[in-house]
Design a protein around this nucleic acid. Structure first.
Lengths: 121, 121
DNA sequence: AAAATGGTGAAGCATACACTTGACTGTAGG
DNA sequence: CCTACAGTCAAGTGTATGCTTCACCATTTT
C-alpha cells in the first residue's frame, strides 16, 4: 500500500514479516552485527540490511556503525507503540462491553420500540 | 512471503494495513455490517470483504451471517496474541539489561583483556 | 412478482515486497 | 601494499497485495 504510512503502520508492517520478527527476537537477546544476523537466516547480507532499514524506520531497531561493522540492537519505541495501540483498542472494546452489561443489568427489559439495537443503526 | 504463516505472523501482517486497522478501530466501538464498514472507507464492498477475510484468519475479527447481512465484531484473540509476543520480547530484553546492570554494579572494572565485549563475539 | 439490498466469486491490473546478483567503498590485518 | 572482510548501491525478478469490475446469488422490501 502506502510507503509513507504513519508510524504505527510501519511498526506492524515490519513485524508482519517472519524474517524481521526473527531478527527482533535475536536482538532481544543482545546486540549483533548485520553479518552475524544473516548467518542463521539463510539469506544474503544485502537482504538482511534491507530488513534492518525497515526495522529501523519502524523504531524497532537501532543501528550504529563503528569502523566497518554496523551493530544493531532493539529499540523499545516501536514495540511500545504497538503495545499502546493494542491497549487502546482493548480499552475501547472492554469499555463498550461494560456499558452494555450495565444497561442490561440496571434496566430490566425496558419497552424498546426500536427494531434494531442502536449500535447496528 | 509465505501465505501460510504462523498465527502471530498473520496478526501482524493484518494490522500492517491502514484500511484493516481502520476496520478494527471501527469495530472496537461496536459491531457493524460489511457494507456499513465500507461506507467511510471509500473502497468497494468487495475489497472490504477481502480485508475482513484476512482479519478473520488472523483472529482479529469474528463475523456471523444472519439473513443476508454479515455482522462483524472484534475478536480479542488476535490482539491478545500480538500483545503477548510484544510482552515476551520486552521481558527478554529487560531481563538482559538487568543482568548487564548487575554485572557492572557487582564487579567494578575487572582486568578485561578481551578487545570486544563478549556479546559481540 | 419485481426491484432493491447485501454479499460472494472470479478475473484482471498496477504496485509493493522480499530477494538476488554484481559492482563498489571503506576498514582491518598480514 | 594487498587481500579479506563488512557493508552499501543499484538493477532486476518473481510473487503477493490491494483494489476494481462484472456477473451472480440470496434475502428483504414494495
Amino acid at each position: 500500500m502506502d510507503t509513507n504510512q504513519p508510524a504505527i503502520g510501519r511498526v506492524f508492517h515490519a513485524l508482519g514479516d517472519a524474517t524481521r520478527r526473527a531478527i527482533v527476537e535475536k536482538l532481544s537477546e543482545g546486540p549483533a552485527s548485520a553479518s552475524r544476523l544473516a548467518e542463521p537466516l539463510g539469506i544474503s547480507l544485502a537482504a538482511v540490511v534491507q530488513h534492518l532499514q525497515i526495522l529501523e524506520e519502524a523504531s524497532l531497531v537501532r543501528t550504529e556503525k563503528l569502523g566497518r561493522v554496523r551493530t544493531c540492537s532493539v529499540h523499545p519505541a516501536g514495540l511500545q507503540m504497538a503495545a499502546q495501540w493494542i491497549a487502546d483498542r482493548r480499552t475501547l472494546w472492554e469499555r463498550r462491553l461494560d456499558r452494555l452489561a450495565d444497561l442490561l443489568a440496571e434496566s430490566p427489559p425496558p419497552e424498546d420500540e426500536t427494531h434494531e439495537p442502536e449500535w447496528l443503526g
